[in-house]
Every structure is written in C-alpha cells, then in structure tokens.
Design a protein around this nucleic acid. Sequence first.
DNA 1: GATGAATGAGCATTCATTCAT
DNA 2: GATGAATGAATGCTCATTCAT
Lengths: 219, 219, 219, 219
Amino acid sequence: MPQKKNKARSPIQKRGIETREKIVKAGMTLFAKKGFHRTNALEIAARAGLATGTFYSYFNNKKEVLVEVIRMFYRNASQEVLNVYDPVASDDPAGNYAEGRKLVHSMIRTLDSAHRLDPHVHREILAMTLIDPDIARINAEEEKKVVAYMTALLGRFREFIRVEDLEAAAVLLYRTGEEIVHRIRVVGSEIDGQRLLAELEEMMCRYLLKDETRAGEGS
Amino acid sequence: MPQKKNKARSPIQKRGIETREKIVKAGMTLFAKKGFHRTNALEIAARAGLATGTFYSYFNNKKEVLVEVIRMFYRNASQEVLNVYDPVASDDPAGNYAEGRKLVHSMIRTLDSAHRLDPHVHREILAMTLIDPDIARINAEEEKKVVAYMTALLGRFREFIRVEDLEAAAVLLYRTGEEIVHRIRVVGSEIDGQRLLAELEEMMCRYLLKDETRAGEGS
Amino acid sequence: MPQKKNKARSPIQKRGIETREKIVKAGMTLFAKKGFHRTNALEIAARAGLATGTFYSYFNNKKEVLVEVIRMFYRNASQEVLNVYDPVASDDPAGNYAEGRKLVHSMIRTLDSAHRLDPHVHREILAMTLIDPDIARINAEEEKKVVAYMTALLGRFREFIRVEDLEAAAVLLYRTGEEIVHRIRVVGSEIDGQRLLAELEEMMCRYLLKDETRAGEGS
Amino acid sequence: MPQKKNKARSPIQKRGIETREKIVKAGMTLFAKKGFHRTNALEIAARAGLATGTFYSYFNNKKEVLVEVIRMFYRNASQEVLNVYDPVASDDPAGNYAEGRKLVHSMIRTLDSAHRLDPHVHREILAMTLIDPDIARINAEEEKKVVAYMTALLGRFREFIRVEDLEAAAVLLYRTGEEIVHRIRVVGSEIDGQRLLAELEEMMCRYLLKDETRAGEGS
DNA sequence: GATGAATGAGCATTCATTCAT
DNA sequence: GATGAATGAATGCTCATTCAT
C-alpha cells in the first residue's frame, strides 16, 4: 500500500460538515489577517473553537485548508459576479460603441467587486500560487473556469468587438483587469486609483471595441 | 533607547564587500531554487562557503539578504534594459504609427528579456512582496524608479501618443506588460504565449498610439 | 478506594462474547502485520467493524487486547500440539533409544508446528514480553503451563531418559527448542535451517537419552 | 536529489566526538531503565546535559542512537570476553574430556559475564530486534561476528569435539547459551538458575564432547 | 448499547540565533 | 574576525481516551 496516507475525514453528517466549514472559515480569516505562513494549525483550530486533534481529523495539514479556502473564494466571487454583473440589457436590439463601453465598464466593476469581497484572502492566494506548485495547480483550475466564462461572454458580444482571437482577448483582459484592480485595492498603486482605472477602461475599450466612428460598419 | 539591535557589519574593506556579495548570490540562487521559506540561514552560509556565524555578522537575518537580492535583481534588470532597449533610432526624423509600434514592441521585448534573466528570483520577489510588508516597501521603491523611467520614455515620444495622462499610462503599461510576460514566462498561461503576446502588443498599440489613419493629424 | 477504573464490560450474552472475539481477532491480525506499537485502537475497532467507542466498552486499552491475544495464541498452540503430537505409541512395551529419538523428534516437530501457526504473532508476543512487565507476567503464566506439561511428558518416558532433574530438563529443552525454531522460522538464521535442526535434535538426544549402546542397562 | 536527508553531523573534533558519546551513553542508560519506546529524544538530550537541538544535530532520531548503543554493547561485550575468557591453558599437552568441560564451562561463564554487564540494555536490544527490521539487521551483523568467533574457537579444540558441522554447532551453542543465560539473568526463570545452568552445561558437554570413556580413542 | 466526533497531552523535529573557542 | 557547536522556542502531527447523541 504505497499510497499517501489520507486520514482526513470526509464528513457526511450535518455536524461534520459544519465543523469542516468552521475550520475553512477560521483558516480564511487567519490567512487573510496574518498570512498563510504566519498562521499555524493550532490557531486555526482554536479560532474554529476546536481542539488541535479535531483539525487534523478533517485536514491533513493547513495547506489542505488553503485549497478549500481557494475554492470557497472562487465560489463567493462567482456569486458576486452574478450579483453585480449586468453588462447590457438582454433585449438590446443592436450592439454599438456605447454598449461596448458598458460591457467593459461592467467587467471592471465586477472584478473590482470580487476584489473588495476579500482582498487579503486574494492576496494570500496569489502569493501561495507563486510559492507552491500544488496551490498553483488548484488556482489554475479555478482561473480556467473564469477565462472560459469570459470567452463565452465576449462571444455573445461579437457584433461590436473588433478582436478576432476571443480566447486570447479573454485571457488578456482578465489578467490585465485583475492585475490593475488588485494593485489598486490590495497593494496600493504608485498613482491614484481613479486615474488608473480610467486609463484601464480606456485601454480595454480601444483594444476590444470597434471604433466609435466605425461602429456602424461592422464586418 | 530600545532600538533594534543592528549588529550587521557594513564592510568597507574589499574582502568584506566580497563576502557580503557571496552571501547575496548564494541567497539569490537558493531563493530561486527552493523559495525563501524553504531556505534557511545555514544553507545560505554553507553555499557561500562560510560558517553560520559569519553569515550573521553580515546580515541580521535572511530577510535582509532578500532585500539585497531584490536590489541586485533590479540592478541586473536595468542593465539588461540598457543592453536590449533601442526603441526608435535616435535620428528618426518624424514620429509616426510605425515608429510607435516599434516603441511598444521594444518595451515588451525588454520586459521579456528582464524576465528571462531570472524568472524564479522574480517569482520569489513577487511572492514575498505579497507576503511581507517590508519587502513590499523595498520592492515598491524599485518599481517607482521603473515607472519614472517609463513615464520619461513616453514623454519623449509624445508626438505619436494619444494618451494624455502619461504617468497613469506608464503604470498601466508596465503592470500589464509585466503581468502578461510573467504569466507566459514563469507561471504558464492558459493559452499559447505567442497568441497572448500578439494581443498584448495590439492592445498596447491601440491604447497608446494615434490611429494609423490619423497618424498625420496629431495635434 | 482509589482503585483502577475498570469499565470494560465482561459480556455474558452471546452477542457480546462474539464482539469481544472479533476485537481480539482484529488485534491479533494487526499486531502480527504491523506490530503492537504501530497499531492503534482506532484501527483495531475499524477492522473489527466497530466504532472506537465500542472498542473501549470491551477493553480498557489495547494492552488488554494483547493479553487476550496471548491467551488465544497459547490456546491455539495447545490445540496444535494435540493435533500434531504423538511421540510414542502409547502401548509401547519397552523404552529404548529409538523410541527416545522419536520423542525428541516429535517435540521439535510440535514446537515447529506451533511456530508455523502464527509466527508473527509469536514474535510480537516475545517482543512485548521483553518490553512490558505486565505482558511478561501473563506470558510467564502461560509458559509455566507448557513447562508443567513437558515435565509430565518427560516423566512418562523416564525409562529411557538419563537426566534426573526432569523439571530443569523440561525448561532447558523447551527454551532451547523454542529459541532455535523461532530463529529458523521467524528471525532467519545465520545458517541453513535444516543443518541447525539436525544439530538441535542431536544435542537434545545426547543430553536426554540414555546412550544407544547402554540403552539396555537402564536404571 | 531523492536521497534521504542525512543531516546528522559526523564530528571529527574532539569535542564533537565527546558530545556524541555522551548522547549514546545517555541513550543506553535510559533505554535500559525505561525502555526504548518510553524514552524520548528530549530526555536523552537532557540526561546528556544537552539541548534538544544538539541531539538532532548528531542523530536524526532516537533509533540511530539505539544502533549506536547496539554497537557499543557488542564492543563492551567483546572486551568482556577477552577479560573473562581463558578456556584452556594454551600449553595444554593433550585435549581430553576434562579440558572439554572447561571449555564449555568457560563459554557459559563468558556469556553470563556479558549478560551481567548490562542485562537491561541487552533485553531492550533483543526486543527491538524483534520489532524493527532495521535494528534486526544491525544486530544480525554483530551476531554474525560472534558466531564466526565461536566457530573458530571450536575449530581450535577439534581434538576433543565429536561434532562435525562446527558452524551449526557454534550457532546452536551460542543461541542456546544466550537464551538460557538471558532467561536466568534478565527475565527470570521458572526454576532456580543454578539448576538450569547445571543442566545447560551438561547438555552442551554431552553434545559437544567426545565421551569421557572414549576420550582417548579420538582420531 | 453503539457511535464516531472531539479532545488535548505528548512527542518528534526544525531552525534562527548566540557565543565560547 | 571567523568558526560551528549549542541552544531552545516553536510547530506539526498522533492517538489513547472520553462523551454527547
């Protein structure tokens, strides 16, 4: 049996699921507050109101908690997207430049909302993604979904989009938007956030949308 | 005066400076290979061919080594920029769209070169910047210089640039370029790097440059 | 009365006895496979198909299981002795050297059979006997019975036995036989088992039996 | 580098060697007093007058100390053999039965002395040999040397020995002697030690030596 | 009675840092 | 100055045992 020992419980009963949830939430809070490396299993357990041993009967180590935190983070962020997002009225008769700007604006606002949700957790996830290959993999899985979602979104607005490689555009816009919003909300930018956001929106529009003056010419 | 103990020597003699250098290089190598957290002072000393005690007579702790590694990294990257960078022939008579593309292309190529230099060190610096406020500060200092440099650069090409807030543009372009190149060179992107770089260049050009067809109209 | 807590149930009903038996068997299997120290109560319970708590309502701790395992082991071994053992036809008219050799041979074969039954359990019992005084005591009780049995056995063949101190002889032969068979079957001997067994038999015969040539001279 | 980390220091300087020695001695004392499993690294370090960390810079874990204890035990025992052992005056003109008895007596006395040296350490080694395959291997190495020594010893007295397979005889006598002496000195025997030792000597003599009455007939 | 979630003391191990030589 | 042995606080993890359901 040369397989990794995997003693972590997979609770089925209601109580077990709640306990697991409590641990993940405690982990999330502490990772956000003190960072992953400065948090230890004892603290997570204590904050969840549990004994050390209980922690270890649900997770093999704190990294497994982080994985769950990442999943929860993306779940929450998706929820937030659904709450916030409403790019263009669905019954819009014809795409045009103004609608395109609304789309871009809406995308940025959505990223921003997702960031405001829990900027410190996000920062920790980013850091761990850089440090730990396992975490990188988990995060990549989640990000793939985001990119797929954005690609599909762009597809729905093809009419007033000038870019042809929609997938590349999705990656580019997601990464760019992420990075800038993260910079403003979490890290702190060299310059005022409003100025930067304005330029970001401008850049995205010029890149993505058919020119205002040419809006009617559509391929 | 409960001030921080600061026993670290500031070597003036040639030999001391060399020893210090050896430690920083050993640190750089190990941080790149194993990451900051998985590297310990003993290893750094050993790889530098020194005793543990000697390490501590040059640095108070390994974080101080990281600070030095960051400084060295930016020094090397600047050097690389000077080697690589040649955006527009200096005797170019008139700015125009083609020249603008060259500028953008050159900027991306430069970032790419800097990344290829030592992607793992770079990754580690990014991670530590997210994790440790002190490191964040040090890194911010260095990045401020980069942004200043880019702002100045854009200023020199104002003729064929449509953006007005040059500083915001510099931050935006730097962050965006950084992020995308980093994604491709270090993390691994969801899609092919060439496609992404092509779109990046396109986005930057559309954002930054006066339209091709309007290139002559410039204010 | 600060007496030891002794909550372990003494089941009288059929079901309880079966459950107890299941635990002992599970313990025996696991002690044999992984050793006493590397086995924990949870595993024993799990393998017996019971919850941890149930385990503790039958036994106060895993050492009590070991005690039961030892008892079961000797019960099984005794059974085996009765199956295997038939030293000399009971109606044998006269003892002589050949009959003596048969006796010795039969004793060795019996020990060997008992060892083959469950060598790993036996090894574990031996080890625990050395480590834990309580276990040593329990095992000593069981061994006392074996020695008594062997003493009686020798008594029945006094005719062709030259040794006078039958009890000492019983201890000596039991210990020697045990040790050598154990060495061959469980530990692995420095030399080939057959050679060693041959010498063992020879040694026992020379020690125990009246000389072939003097066989008739008896008492 | 998928090799086991092996950080344990191999001290060359006098001080380091002494420290290592101190740890082994502390380990030996504690293993003897409390048994291997009931001793922990902290205690060993404390008894050696060292900090926990120091312990781990000399040994990777307490098992490694046990290995060293085993080696030291056999070293001491060998020393004891040389001190005690003097089977037959070297200038003895002719082997005969009386000399043979002296040889056997001397062998038993030697085993006994070795046992008296440190019976508890010996018991612990035996137990660990049964429990841990690594320890079993280490111990087997040491025992092989003993058997080789005894085989050679028997060879020197071939004249009054009737056994032909000297190696098998060496194993048999060593194991038997060991077991009985151990039983008497460490475990406690069912019967009085003197009686058992007397029978042991008798058994060994009858097995090994040419018959008293035939002593002169030797090839 | 049975269950299995929860407990928490206990142990192994690491490593930043000090300091006698 | 350089050395590297020594330090010991800190932390990850295990498991015998309890107890609410």
